[in-house]
């Protein structure tokens, strides 16, 4: 951001911040348009597009039929040939229906064609549990897409980042997949007016600390910060890193933090095994920070089950604040 320009900062919800980013992107660049199911008059299943159709019309806020594979593919084709589509999956779970176009086409087209084309498509995925929507509407599949070279995968955790990273995604010449936790949509935070970008591939230290490093993603950033506050009351000083980007991962920020604190914990909602925290842990184990570790790495991730409907079971499938506090306490005090 230009420091010379006086920029007003307001409180916006995460959903409003995304909506504002999409409006700004469409105002700045007439190639940008939105596609998705019920994003027009309905305003999107989570009211993220809201009333944009009234401002930009149905040509730029396009309702698609219920056709995720075809819809994602149309977005890819439009991106390759000069447009800048932002494609909304109604729920991230429906990425499973679009996987062919995402994984085989969008991710690989530039490479397979020897650099002859770029695929500047943005796809948005409302993700995560906590809404009582059960196994097919609650998943966190970011690690799936993070596994694919050619894609960029981001998980903004604040309204500020949601706006800035979406605008960065639209600028980006390559396919960017944005995972938005549904429980964040109503969360408010400061958001500057006007255009700005937040770089893809840069983690952010949300709380500096010296006793252990907690690397968290998406909604878990907020849970980790809450846990850090409790831990501070016990004299444990946690550093909380908001990873923000799953691919390409900001190794440097994490490595430097672990060299300082000598203890690493990863907190993420996706299924623990083969998830984002597995990659962070392995990355540290392979790095120069390994020698600095004073304790085994700890991962808190989603349970090894589909997301259940019952609210108590649902809560138990994902890391919660008290669980983070407990695990961090054990890690920091070495009582293992």
């Amino acid at each position: 951001m230009d420091a010379m320009v006086e920029t007003a900062v307001r409180e916006l919800s995460y959903a409003q911040a995304i909506q504002e980013a999409m409006a700004i992107a469409m105002e700045r660049d007439e190639r940008v348009f939105l596609m998705g199911e019920d994003i027009g008059v309905y305003g999107g299943a989570f009211q993220v597009t809201g009333d944009l159709v009234e401002r930009f019309g149905t040509e730029r806020v396009m309702d698609t039929p219920i056709s995720e594979l075809g819809g994602a593919g149309v977005a890819v084709g439009a991106a390759v040939t000069g447009l800048r589509p932002i494609f909304e999956f109604q729920f991230s779970d429906f990425a499973t229906l679009g996987m062919e176009q995402i994984v085989n086409q969008a991710a690989k087209m530039r490479y397979m064609l020897g650099g002859a084309v770029s695929v500047p498509v943005v796809m948005r995925f409302p993700a995560g549990s906590g809404t009582g929507a059960a196994a097919q509407h609650s998943q966190s599949l970011e690690a799936w897409l993070g596994h694919v070279p050619g894609l960029k995968v981001i998980q903004p955790a604040t309204p500020h980042d949601a706006k800035g990273m979406l605008l960065a995604a639209v600028e980006d010449p390559d396919p960017v997949m944005i995972f938005e936790h549904k429980l964040l949509y109503k969360m408010k935070g400061p958001v500057p007016e006007g255009y700005y970008t937040v770089p893809i591939g840069k983690a952010e230290i949300r709380r500096a600390g010296s006793d252990l490093t907690i690397v968290a993603t998406s909604i878990m950033v907020h849970k980790a910060l809450e846990a850090a506050q409790t831990l501070a009351g016990e004299g444990i000083d946690a550093e909380v890193i908001d990873l923000r980007t799953v691919r390409p991962m900001d190794r440097r920020t994490v490595i430097e933090s672990v060299r300082k604190t000598s203890r690493l914990m990863c907190v993420y909602e996706g299924v623990k095994t083969l998830g984002v925290g597995a990659e962070v842990s392995a990355m540290i184990a392979e790095s120069e920070a390994f020698d600095y570790l004073d304790a085994p790495i700890v991962r808190l991730g989603g349970a090894e089950t589909p997301i259940p409907y019952n609210p108590e079971l649902e809560k138990a499938t994902v890391p919660q604040v008290d669980g983070i506090v407990r695990a961090a306490r054990e890690l920091a005090t070495g009582a293992r």
Partner: peptide, 16 residues
């Protein structure tokens, strides 16, 4: 109601 006596033992809910 998410109960064990439900058809999906509380795992599925309305949609399953």
């Amino acid at each position: 109601f998410g109960k064990t006596t439900g058809y999906c033992r509380g795992r599925g809910g309305s949609m399953h």
